[in-house]
Design a protein around this nucleic acid. Structure first.
Lengths: 132, 132
DNA sequence: ATGAAGGTTCTAGCGGCTATAAGGTCAACC
DNA sequence: GGTTGACCTTATAGCCGCTAGAACCTTCAT
């Protein structure tokens, strides 16, 4: 049982920025914090855990809507796992699709990079290939 | 020698949207178009070619600043090729770095997806792994 | 008492568009 | 000549996930 901490301390503890925490509150990702008499936000371990959860989910590339959905599901032990699975699955599909695109892009850029041995733009194959 | 076309026709010809073309003008990527008496923008093949150039460069994932730089270089036949090369090279590096990240992400998501065989959130390994 | 390091709210900005509103123009048809 | 509908114009706001800045208040150590 540790005592409540300020937003700056929570930020440090979770490697987030204070502004980001306030932003999360403003978009409903975390509940409005309790306040000191002076209006300072106060947090407990519960909020710290929630923030860590958010960080991990964001690290998976999930957008804030998905994170919010996951948080909602996590809060309800009886919720079916399906919805969790499908959020992860869809993210995996998005990542794979993006990977495909990027791999193709890498090839194109690699080919472009190799093809130009000119000195000036006049003979540059890269510019040529962009102009056609 | 074809006659000048309107923004909508240019948009169709280059598979862009008219708003995007106006946006490019507003950020200085293309020069202000000549206008009819009524104020309609008019374009020639020159602008069409420039727009196609922009599209190809954007397709390589380059941002508008890089595209602008490339356009500037393309306009000057005596410019050294180096700068073109370095824009492409840096983009390739960015793409490769992003690829690395995404590949790692794919693994993580794949592992997560496999690990959950539960029915409800209470036993869900995904939620567990996000909460720790 | 003072100064630094924290906290507060509010507003605006990033990139690259996209959407909406409220209006002007043009060509075709009746 | 009047009307429709497709096109054009500008201006403004919104998207996402923060980030930066201004202007101010509170806390703590010296």
């Amino acid at each position: 049982m540790t005592s409540p901490i300020t937003i700056g301390q929570l930020a440090k503890a979770t490697d987030t920025k204070a502004v980001t925490i306030r932003y999360y509150e403003s978009v409903g990702l975390i509940a409005p914090a309790t306040r000191t008499q002076a209006g300072y936000r106060l947090y407990t371990e519960q909020e710290r855990d929630r923030l860590i959860f958010i960080k991990r989910a964001r690290h998976l590339g999930l957008n804030l809507d998905d994170v919010k959905a996951l948080l909602g599901l996590a809060d309800d032990n009886n919720a079916p796992c399906e919805q969790v699975d499908s959020i992860i699955h869809e993210q995996l599909e998005r990542v794979r699709s993006r990977l495909k695109d990027l791999q193709q892009l890498e090839q194109e850029l690699d080919r472009l990079e190799r093809c130009c041995q000119a000195d000036t733009v006049a003979d540059c194959k890269i510019i040529e290939s962009l102009s056609r």
